[in-house]
Design a protein around this nucleic acid. Sequence first.
RNA 1: UGGGGUGUCGCCAAGUUGGUAAGGCACAAGGUUUUGAUCCUUGCAUGCGUUGGUUCGAGUCCAGCCACCCCAGCCA
Length: 585
Amino acid sequence: MSANDKSNTPTTAASGSAPASNFIRHIIEQDLQSGKHNGRVQTRFPPEPNGYLHIGHAKSICLNFGVAQSHHGQCNLRFDDTNPAKESQEFINSIKADIEWLGFHWDGEVRFASSYFDALHGFAVQLINSGKAYVCSLSPDEAREYRGTLTSPGKDSPFRERSIEENLDLFARMRGGEFPDGAHSLRAKIDMAAPNINLRDPVLYRIRHVEHHQTGNKWPIYPMYDYAHCISDAMECITHSLCTLEFEDHRPLYEWILQSLDIETLHAASDSTAPAAEYVLPRQIEFARLNINYTVMSKRKLKELVTEGYVSGWDDPRMPTISGLRRRGYTAESIRNFCERAGVARSAGVVEVAMLEHSIREDLDAAAPRAMCVLRPLKVTLTNYPEDKTETLVLPSHPKSEEMGTREIPFAKELYIDASDFEQIPPPKYKRLSPGVEVRLRGGYVIRCDEVVKDASGTVVELLCSYDPETLGVNPQGRKVAGVIHWVPAKQALDVEVRIYDRLFNKENPDDKNIADYKECLNPESLVILQGCKVEPSLADAAPESSFQFEREGYFCIDRFDSNAERIVFNRTVTLRDSWAKMSS
RNA sequence: UGGGGUGUCGCCAAGUUGGUAAGGCACAAGGUUUUGAUCCUUGCAUGCGUUGGUUCGAGUCCAGCCACCCCAGCCA
């Protein structure tokens, strides 16, 4: 697959073989063997539309869709939209776009927890009727006091023993919009002394007079996550409900709710077309969320970076969001490979960014055409090259892939090389240009620096060099030329803007407790904009989002939004590995 | 001091029923190279948080201890 081919099709794991084994796949295989779900595997990816997806979500997406795919099962996309105050259609749109870009296809129509609101309401009435839920009229503050603490039990709400009739009446009036926000709540009647706080009569429904992006003003009450999620799973006949570790403590509640409901009713409300006897409740399985060093992954913080203007938006190329990585030049394939490599387990760890960078280098090395771009131009005049002559050099687009064709680069008397490829006093082992030393111009001739031109301040402004006309495509006789540097023709090179991106944070763990505010360690050099960079003319018509390897520099892509015919903008995706930088530092 | 989890190489992570520690990243050293890139080769845990125990034999079983993570939203 080409880096410039945006038709993403998930194919294989990083190694090109089957997905690595993990504990979730083991569980599923066991369930398949025991016939628990009649050979069916149904998962779901359940984002709340309150922000953009980040690479941590990509892990979950790859897991949920991947696991379904390898067992000929299906994966639903379900928006967990039970808190309209924080959600929006913009986020719904971006989430769908990101999943598709990643190359995954959800089963059937997009689902919404909000489309189950009627059923959810009905189940709540059922719980009231069976004495398993009650309307509590404690204020939120009072409820907190009654809940107790981590080490001491809570105490029963004074409203806990209301009659079923009264509960039914109150709940109906809650739904009718008769009460203000927070006046009452519907709670599960479980155990106020439970050591697991989630079981201390958790709230099932709260009153919120807010418009919902999907259901408008139909509801003044909204279900809580714990209540809506498990029932939604059951209604969609999810077999394995995968979520992150922080929901571990919620699993008993997940199970309590489903087991408290009448299974016949549940079955009838579900997608199931199978006989009731085959209807099996979903099982929640938790895995560790993805963390990467030198970045933050919480939606709250990402949102803060956006709204407070530390970055240009959710899709800023420095953001660990799917859309940010995409704009940075990461391919869907590289993100999928990264997730596969990082693995799925139950121990919470932090993956090194180096692994992410490896994944994109691996993909782009194979797929990106090569080009030359001089980031910090230094003029070179070839004193012995004819004034009016221009040659056309033909270079392969890729050193190992002939199918990728060739490109033409004009060669003339005046060129640009990168300022960092010249040193007046070369350090040891330096293989680039310096006074009296020869170097190979990539794809062109060997040149020697004869004279250094400086301005009044002593800054090197031009190099006068001579070229060896016998060295085009052949090595000179009797001497060894150590270095090869990239260059562009002065006259024909295109002026471009290059955005040099680096890590957003300069501390490995911005969330470290010794750091008061993660914004303290924002890297002031995470974006350096270079103007007047010179790229070879063959890139004049390159398409937005296409990626190139600028030889000896790194991988760069054309910004999908800011680049146009008048102003070509490249984003640096990642540098090349650089053993010289390691050596010289 | 309550409950739930996790601890295998610098990082991630495999380790079926106990039988003698996969792989990837990173790193290091060589080789190839008109990208100090790629690629290739080689190296990289006598030890699996720790202490004991069971066993012919334990990362895998048992007990104790230690460390770290999550939970007291009418957020998800």
